[in-house]
């Protein structure tokens, strides 16, 4: 796959809840290039999280087409394998497992790969170093600050060498200063690991860090604003 190819191609995607009463996605179109960093913005309830869930194959659409990393998500049955290989999630809440140490939390996605225990540990260490947490690898998440937890979550998202990071308001529960650290980290790692970054955010200053902003309204992409790049 070369750099100009689209890693995400969505056409006319529809998803409704409550027997069609709620149209979370209503004919969504979106194309994202490999290695791109986009932010998705829009009012609450406009369908941003729903869109991310579709890209990450956490949910399936009712209509339309969605191709991610060359896989037709309307057809494939091996959704978990797709998630394990291609996607890394960063949620608003860190969602770490409280009784596991930092490094164990990072290794969790690797259970579904054929990685050996040494490979697992080395990869987790490499990423924890990258997020500047190598001195806390054996701590429990409850002992960490919010920003540190989110850094663990980022390491966890990257551990399987995904092609796409999906971040749903990754700074939403952090103060602006910590949020900025996390954003810079995400941006750095996206470049370093050559991974596509799709980030949902409410805050314009966060959105502006992306190469492109996509505005979502009523389950559709409104206009595509090419911002900084």
């Amino acid at each position: 796959m070369n750099n100009t190819e689209n890693i995400i191609e969505i056409k006319g995607l529809k998803k409704s809840y409550d027997n069609g009463k709620i149209k979370a996605l209503n004919g969504m179109d979106l194309e994202v290039k490999k290695g791109e960093f986009i932010s998705i913005m829009g009012p609450s309830g406009s369908g941003k999280s729903s869109l991310l869930n579709m890209i990450g194959a956490l949910d399936t659409a009712n209509e339309g087409s969605i191709m991610v990393a060359g896989i037709d998500l309307m057809k494939t049955k091996k959704l978990n394998k797709f998630r394990s290989k291609e996607i890394g999630f960063v949620f608003q809440m860190h969602n770490l497992i409280p009784n596991l140490s930092v490094i164990e939390n990072v290794q969790i996605p690797m259970f579904e790969t054929n990685a050996s225990s040494t490979e697992m540990r080395e990869r987790a260490l490499e990423l924890l170093k990258a997020v500047d947490l190598e001195d806390k690898i054996d701590q429990k998440p409850t002992k960490l600050s919010g920003g540190e937890r989110q850094r663990v979550a980022i390491a966890r998202a990257l551990v399987n060498h995904p092609s796409i990071i999906l971040a749903d308001e990754p700074t939403g529960s952090l103060d602006s200063k910590t949020g900025e650290v996390i954003l810079n980290l995400l941006k750095d790692l996206h470049a370093k690991e050559n991974v596509t970054l799709v980030m949902v955010t409410h805050e314009p200053y966060v959105g502006n860090m992306a190469e492109r902003i996509v505005n979502v309204l009523d389950g559709k992409c409104q206009n595509i604003v090419s911002s900084l790049s």
Binding site: N80, R83, I87, F91, N95, I97, I108, P109, E112
Partner: peptide, 16 residues
Amino acid sequence: TREIGVLKAVGWTDRR
């Protein structure tokens, strides 16, 4: 529940 959602999101199979 949430944790199980996370495990699914990181690719764990239903069987696991």
